[in-house]
């Protein structure tokens, strides 16, 4: 089974994944295959800044099965400007997430 790994420490909130997904699946205005949520900036109790963006796939996400069958990366993964998204089998992603160590999430849409 495949999923999407987001190294969300590095998600810049650039919205490329959103439009890339819309292009691939022809999704109309007001609806999304993946949507970036944003929280921040605010100061943590230790004085450091918090500003976290996480792209969340919706039910429309089919993990780009057509693209993947053509040997391409999912559209959001390829176009991500921060290169913080990865696609692959869950067991690989779990290993990668462990390596990242913190602020990682795996979606199985």
């Amino acid at each position: 089974m495949n999923g999407l790994l987001i190294d969300y420490n590095w998600c810049s909130g650039c919205h490329s994944c959103e439009i890339a997904c819309k292009n691939e699946h022809d999704i109309p205005l007001g609806k999304w295959g993946i949507k970036v949520t944003e929280d921040g900036p605010w100061k943590l109790p230790n004085g450091e800044w918090h500003w976290t963006n996480v792209p969340i796939p919706t039910e429309i996400c089919d993990l780009c099965s057509k693209r993947v069958s053509e040997g391409k990366e999912p559209s959001c993964v390829q176009h991500c400007q921060a290169k913080c998204m990865q696609f692959g089998p869950l067991e690989d992603l779990v290993k990668k997430a462990e390596k990242i160590g913190k602020k990682a999430v795996i979606f199985m849409p």
């Binding site: 650039c14 919205h15 490329s16 959103e18 439009i19 890339a20 292009n23 990366e73 390829q78 176009h79 991500c80 400007q81 290169k83």
Partner: peptide, 8 residues
Amino acid sequence: GALCPRCL
């Protein structure tokens, strides 16, 4: 392979 939303 990356693009910003404007070119997309």
